[in-house]
Amino acid sequence: MEEEKAREIVVPGETIENRKEFIAGEGTRKEGNEIVAERFGVVDRSTKLLKVIPLSGVYIPRKGNTVIGQVIDITFNGWFVDIRAPHLGFLTIAECGKRVIKEDLSEYYKVKDILLAKVKSVKTRSIELTMKERGLKKLDEGLIILVNPTRVPRIIGRAGSMVNLIKKETNTTIVVGQNGVIWIKGKNVENELLAKKAIELVSEKPFIEGLTEKVKEFLENEKAGWKK
């Protein structure tokens, strides 16, 4: 418990601040002079714009997010993709990143295929996806793991520091979808499993100080165990 940072955790309906100069940001509302939490989470006081950073919850898509999803249905003009959001993602032929000449769209992406895509736009009933950018593709090989989407920023780390550390130490390629779907590809399964363990460690302990060091230590210990 001692190693855990004293964080300001709030519950819905709780007053975060009653001084006038503060502004209600994400996860909060203004009620008179008071700023009130609208989600269970940690208060972000880095600016006057107060936010509540949620500690749990399903993935809420945003334009520009990189996501990993699974094709669950094919229509005449595109693919329905499960991205763990309150709505399905939809990938149109125009956005699929391939020159489509055949009528049968399963020639390009089949049901159950795993796609690395981006959110193009968010509408009330559907989420439009695109695969037209470089690097967006169907994922063929590797390990897929799921984490709570609220943990994604911690897993990526400041300027990618955490995920880069794990990649380097485990000799793997890792793509972290904003929707909490993570793709790990290594030279062998052992490396992928080690990366998985490290990611789970980060995901389970978002409050610990010096997490990067702990992860490094963990990976070194595990690898030392292999050599024995």
Binding site: D82, K112, I144, L146, E192
Partner: peptide, 24 residues
């Protein structure tokens, strides 16, 4: 989305080598 074809393949490879995803 819990079970993907990719993970399925990995689990089967591990099982063939008498190993499991959670280390048991």
């Amino acid at each position: 989305m819990e079970v993907t074809n990719l993970t399925k393949k990995r689990i089967e490879e591990l099982i063939a080598r008498n190993k499991r995803l959670d280390g048991r």
